[in-house]
């Protein structure tokens, strides 16, 4: 008797397992059938954290334009995007920096194809400071002095800023990015002239993290994409040299090239893109796609109406 009961409970478990397996198998079957229809195409993209929200908005909107194409968006940093592209696991790499010649070489060796570049938007690398901080303008040299190795600037008073007025520490809290970030690479190249960063900065792994920490820390300075500006943090104007006027990162100042830290946001494909991918990039460069660039707080590419 007990053996029969034991058997039946075992049977029940077995039925459960088989049922679950069948369910999931039909599940896969169903999804496979769906993708087997030729219309559904997936474009995989990854890369820059600066661009990840912009890329997400494009993907979301493009779904309405062409429902047959699904765009996958992943972040990780420009370096991650380029590595993924070289490994052939994605179709488009989003980057906020140029591809280095070594990386181009590697891509050619591994895939036999030349990476093709598309400029899809402009961004200003903005310098952020806390709302309470009275600072208005900073020069490129001062920035290098704050962030660069052996840079002499450690305290706000060295920049003529009196932090006692807002009861904050005189020490400059330097906020930087992790080294796979394109923003980090851009800053190192254009502000530090390819020299190293000073040790002891707080390296955040996201564009938003930098702005958030600056918002919370009175004595902090940080750099991040201009699209991450909020009402609770302020832009510091940047002057190319001492004595020259400083400019805010704005649409006009970026397009007129007055703002010294403007850069291109790029997309890379391996070889010329196929029709579907090409259609997607064309749409991004169209007024509809560039409208999203503007809405996300970045600067549309110049050849499209402002």
């Amino acid at each position: 008797m007990s053996l029969i009961r034991a058997w039946s409970s075992y049977k029940l478990a077995e039925v459960c397992i088989i049922a679950a397996t069948c369910l999931t198998l039909t599940g896969c079957g169903g999804s496979e059938k769906k993708t087997a229809t030729p219309e559904k195409v997936v474009i995989a993209t990854s890369g820059s954290d600066t661009m990840v929200n912009l890329a997400q908005m494009w993907a979301e909107e493009y779904q309405k334009v062409n429902p047959a194409v699904t765009v996958e968006v992943a972040g990780g940093g420009s370096g991650v995007g380029i590595r993924d592209l070289i490994q052939g696991v994605i179709t488009i790499a989003n980057t906020s920096r140029e591809m280095e010649s070594a990386e181009r070489e590697q891509a050619k060796q591994k895939t036999g194809k030349e990476p093709v570049e598309f400029v899809v938007a402009y961004d200003a690398l903005a310098i952020y400071a806390n709302m309470k901080n009275p600072i208005d303008t900073i020069t490129m040299d001062d920035l290098a002095g704050i962030y660069g190795e052996n840079g002499p600037i450690e305290k706000w008073s060295q920049l003529g800023i009196d932090m006692k007025a807002i009861e904050a520490n005189d020490e400059i809290v330097r906020i930087s990015r992790q080294n796979s970030s394109g923003t980090y690479a851009y800053f190192r190249e254009h502000v530090l002239n390819k020299k190293d960063f000073k040790m002891g900065s707080k390296d955040m792994s996201g564009s938003k993290d930098v702005v958030e920490l600056v918002t919370k820390t009175a004595g902090a300075i940080g750099y991040s994409g201009m699209g991450y500006h909020t009402d609770h943090v302020k832009f510091v104007k940047v002057a190319a040299k001492k004595g020259e006027p400083g400019y805010e990162p704005s649409l006009d100042n970026v397009l007129s090239k007055k703002y010294p830290l403007a850069r291109s946001l790029l997309m890379f494909t391996l070889g010329q893109p196929d029709t579907t991918t090409k259609a997607y990039i064309d749409w991004i460069l169209s007024p509809a796609g560039q409208e999203i660039v503007k809405k996300s707080g970045y600067v549309p590419v110049a050849n499209v109406k402002k």
Binding site: C28, T35, V42, A44, Q63, V73, A74
Partner: peptide, 21 residues
């Protein structure tokens, strides 16, 4: 295999192919 964003239909029970992210 996790992505930042990917569009699927609202309430779609089989939106992902096992080979996709």
């Amino acid at each position: 295999g996790a992505v930042f964003f990917k569009h699927v239909q609202r309430g779609d029970l089989f939106p992902y192919h096992p080979g996709e992210q």
